[in-house]
Amino acid sequence: MLTGRVILGATLVGIVLVVAVVGLFWTPYPTSLPDLPNRFQSPSLNHLMGTDELGRDIFSRAMVGARTSLIISLSAVLLATAVGTLVGFVAGYAGGVVDLVLSRLLDILLAVPALVLALGIVAMLGASGTSVTIALAWAYTPTFARVFRGVVVAARDHPYVEASRGLGLSAPVVIAKDLLPTVLPVMVVQVTTALAWGIMDEAGLGFLGLGVQPPAPSWGSLLIEGRQYLYDAPWLPIGAGVFVIIAVLGTNLLGDGLRDVLDPRSWTTRHSGRRARA
């Protein structure tokens, strides 16, 4: 049964996706052409989020930036999911020395905060959208691998998995037939939650000047563009900030709600605790 969090989260995410898709074909104003007579216009009916130092409409640029930021975040998360799934399944299913070596490597990577690791990778590769995608994927992969490994380790000794092994099925077949369906609910929740990380980290790297480079807009680059005019025109970073808040809140609510829907144990535990307190 869909919960209120799932519905609200899906609604907020849907709003952001609609804005991003519409931005592919139409924006209220050109996003790159300067309009100097209208520079530093405060929010109004003509310019919902005001204009920047070159007279460009901030709402229009935020619409185009939504596409860039979401593509980078989604690409990074999907890449991390693919690599993390492979590493997690190999480590969890093989066990023994393979699991020990891979787990220690994951521990080393997890010891470094994801954003710090991403900063170092972007610094080596150079500031660009592709570099941010690779950096975030690299930073998120250990977390995905660790989560999926844990699920596989918990499921690999179940009777139905042992039965498939006893029938002589190969490891790839056992993984695809028995273990992958067990991991899929966790994967859905993990991907949804990680999208919030990706959106925030892309905006953070863009704010530091290491993301998509001007004049191409992204939420992160829009945040830093208004920094030097913050006291005179405080509305400049608000446009991108509002979209970041909506997107992160929506993905967090959606991920939390999907966890309740896909994992009945969390719903039972939470409601049992409520009844005990009552």
Score class of each variant (00 low, 15 high):
Ser103Asp: 13
Gly65Gln: 01
Ala80Arg: 00
Ala127Pro: 08
Gly88Lys: 00
Val90His: 14
Ile71Ala: 10
Pro113Ile: 01
Phe59His: 00
Ala82Gln: 03
Leu78Lys: 06
Tyr93Gln: 13
Ala127Asn: 11
Gly92His: 03
Thr68Ile: 14
Ala114Asp: 13
Ala80Phe: 11
Leu78His: 08
Leu117Ser: 10
Leu119Ala: 04
Phe59Val: 00
Thr130Asp: 07
Ser69Asp: 07
Ile71Gly: 03
Asp107Ile: 03
Arg61Ser: 05
Leu86Asn: 13
Leu105Ser: 05
Val98Trp: 02
Arg104Gly: 08
Leu109Pro: 07
Ala76Glu: 02
Val132Thr: 08
Val132His: 10
Val98Asp: 12
Thr68Leu: 06
Phe59Met: 05
Ile121Ala: 11
Ala91Glu: 09
Ile71Met: 15
Leu117Met: 12
Met63Asp: 10
Tyr93Phe: 15
Leu70Arg: 02
Leu115Met: 15
Gly126Leu: 01
Leu115Tyr: 12
Leu117Asn: 07
Ala76Cys: 05
Gly92Thr: 05
Ile71Tyr: 12
Val112Pro: 07
Val97Ile: 15
Gly65His: 05
Leu119Cys: 02
Val90Leu: 15
Leu86Ser: 15
Asp57Tyr: 00
Val64Tyr: 06
Met124Glu: 11
Thr68Lys: 13
Ala114Cys: 03
Phe89Lys: 05
Leu100Trp: 15
Val112Arg: 08
Thr68Glu: 01
Ile72Met: 14
Ser103Arg: 14
Asp99Arg: 14
Ala114Phe: 07
Leu119Arg: 12
Asp107Thr: 02
Leu86Ile: 15
Leu100Arg: 14
Thr130Leu: 14
Leu125Asp: 10
Gly95Lys: 15
Leu106Pro: 14
Ile121Trp: 10
Val116Lys: 07
Leu115Phe: 15
Val112Asp: 13
Asp57Met: 01
Asp99Glu: 15
Ala66Pro: 11
Ile72Gly: 02
Gly126Ala: 01
Ser69Pro: 02
Val101Asn: 12
Leu105Gln: 12
Leu109Asn: 07
Ile72Asn: 02
Ser75Gln: 06
Ala82Ile: 15
Thr130Ile: 07
Ser103Ile: 08
Leu86Arg: 12
Ser131Trp: 00
Phe59Leu: 08
Ala76His: 03
Leu70Asn: 00
Val64Phe: 04
Leu70Ala: 06
Ala82Pro: 03
Gly96Ala: 06
Thr81Val: 12
Thr85Tyr: 09
Leu70Glu: 10
Ile58Met: 07
Leu102Asn: 14
Val101Arg: 04
Ser131Asn: 05
Leu78Trp: 04
Met124Asp: 08
Arg104Ala: 11
Asp107Pro: 04
Ala76Phe: 01
Ser60Tyr: 02
Arg56His: 09
Leu115Trp: 04
Leu117Pro: 03
Ser128Val: 02
Leu102Pro: 10
